[in-house]
């Protein structure tokens, strides 16, 4: 499969001397759902800025579907849509006009633009708001409007810079469903997010940024496999105390309160084995959940190391 984004030896030093990117190499395959993760100031937004041509690279190569953004920016721009981190449409324009105007910037015929504007606004639940001034929208609606705007020219690559920041959980889930549908339709998606759960749920591959460099670039699965242990919390049907685990195969379980305890699961250990041990000592489990998001755990362990 061809590369949607291909980056070699990318450096960016701002006028104030800050080195935002220090030799980034990255390949994102077509139709991938790819996450860019890292702490604030790690260089993710600078990278997106360079791809979108809003930031000029100091050195290196960036191409989108084989077209260099430095030497063939106009051709490259036809293939991607950007959903920026901050709301950047005119607050005085009507919702439909924001999308229609963007369609016009890509040279879409008015009838095509109108049809797509309606389709994407309906899909993102904004059609009823089409005649409202965009400043009247809620935060979540503004984010969805930016997604509709980025999709109106039907790009092969959609880049989202923290698209669900400040969006409530219901809406976030519905946006995830929408993005997954778009991805299934063949659109490559690159996502930066602070919600690690979001990256884990949506993305197949991931690059972790730190201090202007990519420190990990792998599949989500292999990254999570690197976790040394995972902690699960069990809620029990009946009251329990510390003595129940003594002498059993799960003696390392820790009581949290009268109706819950937690157990660390090492790589290779199976959750079903734990259930077998629990049934042996007559503990009925009502509910089980992961203590922390696994990716978050990975992040925290890395932070401890650094």
């Amino acid at each position: 499969m061809a590369s949607a984004i291909s980056i070699q030896e990318l450096h960016k030093t701002y006028a104030n001397g800050h080195q935002a990117l220090r030799g980034v190499d990255l390949e994102v395959q077509e139709q991938d759902f790819f996450a860019l993760l890292g702490p604030n100031g790690a260089g993710k937004s600078t990278l997106i800025g360079i791809i979108s041509t809003l930031v000029r690279q100091t050195s290196g190569n960036v191409s989108v579907f084989g077209k260099s953004v430095a030497t063939h920016p106009y051709e490259a721009k036809l293939d991607f849509g950007i959903v920026p981190q901050e709301v950047n449409f005119s607050p005085f324009e009507k919702v439909a006009d924001v999308v229609m105007t963007q369609a016009g910037y890509y040279g879409l015929h008015r009838s095509v633009a109108r049809e797509r504007t309606e389709r994407y606004l309906r899909q993102l639940g904004l059609w009823d708001k089409r005649d409202n001034r965009s400043r009247m929208l809620s935060g979540g609606m503004k984010r969805r409007l930016m997604i509709a705007r980025a999709l109106v020219h039907e790009p092969r690559l959609l880049i989202l810079d923290e698209p669900t920041a400040g969006v409530d959980i219901d809406l976030r889930r519905s946006m995830w469903d929408f993005l997954q549908e778009i991805n299934k339709g063949g659109t490559t998606i690159v996502l930066t997010t602070h919600y690690l759960e979001e990256a884990e749920s949506l993305c197949r591959n991931i690059a972790i940024f730190d201090d202007g460099r990519i420190t990990e670039c792998t599949s989500m699965k292999s990254l999570l496999n690197k976790l040394e242990l995972q902690t699960f919390i069990f809620d029990t049907q009946y009251e329990i105390d510390m003595h129940v685990f003594r002498g059993s195969d799960i003696g390392h379980a820790r009581i949290l309160d009268t109706h819950s305890f937690e157990i660390d699961l090492k790589p290779g250990e199976d959750l079903s084995q734990i259930f077998t041990h629990l049934s042996r000592i007559n503990i009925l489990v009502k509910n089980v959940r992961s203590k922390t998001n696994r990716l978050e755990q990975f992040f925290l362990s890395r932070a401890k190391i650094s």
């Binding site: 721009k77 005119s90 963007q102």
Partner: peptide, 17 residues
Amino acid sequence: SQKFQRSIEELLVSPIP
């Protein structure tokens, strides 16, 4: 104003010469 509101980015990321 468009620079200030950053809505100029709509234009700058589009393929308009």
